[in-house]
Amino acid sequence: MIRKLSAALLALVAASPAHAYWEYGHQTIAQIAYANVTPRTKAAVRRILATQTLLETPECPAGTIEDASVWADCVKPLKNAASNSRFGYAYSWHYQDADVCAPFDLTPSCKDGNCVSVQIERDVKLLRARATSPKDRVQALVFLIHFVGDLHQPLHAGDRNDKGGNDLKADYGIYGPPKFNLHSIWDGPLAERAISTPPSLVRRYPAAERVRVAKGNVTDWSREGWQVAHTAYAAAIGGDGCGPVPPRATLDEATIEKLTPISREEVRRGGIRLAKLLDEALG
Rank of each mutant, 00 (worst) to 15 (best):
P103C: 09
P178H: 05
L277K: 10
S263D: 10
K4N: 08
G188Y: 03
Y233D: 02
C101R: 09
H156N: 11
E192P: 00
I29D: 00
A18S: 10
M1Q: 12
N36D: 09
C101D: 09
C74I: 05
T107W: 07
T219E: 09
S200E: 13
R268E: 10
R212A: 15
G270T: 00
A18G: 12
V138S: 01
R40D: 08
V37F: 00
A20Q: 07
L54S: 05
H94S: 09
R40C: 02
L10Q: 08
L5H: 07
L126T: 10
A82G: 01
A229V: 11
S69K: 02
Y175L: 15
A8N: 12
T64L: 07
L144T: 11
S83C: 12
V213S: 05
H94Q: 14
Y95N: 12
A81P: 08
S117D: 09
W71Q: 03
T132S: 12
R273K: 15
P61F: 10
E192T: 00
V45P: 04
E23N: 14
A35E: 14
L168M: 09
T197S: 15
K215I: 05
G158H: 02
A194V: 02
E66Q: 12
D220T: 09
R248M: 09
Y24F: 12
I195F: 01
G88I: 10
I237A: 02
A281Q: 00
G241F: 02
Q96Y: 13
A232K: 07
P247V: 04
W71K: 04
A50Q: 06
R223A: 15
E257R: 15
T38M: 07
V75F: 09
L201I: 12
G188L: 07
Y21T: 14
A90M: 14
V142P: 04
P189S: 04
A33W: 00
L151M: 09
S83M: 14
W186L: 15
L9N: 02
V245I: 14
A194T: 03
R160P: 08
D136M: 13
R3V: 08
A81M: 11
Y233C: 05
H183R: 04
I2P: 06
G149S: 13
D167T: 00
L127I: 14
V148M: 03
L49D: 08
A236L: 02
P17L: 08
E59H: 03
C60P: 07
Y205N: 01
D252L: 05
I120K: 02
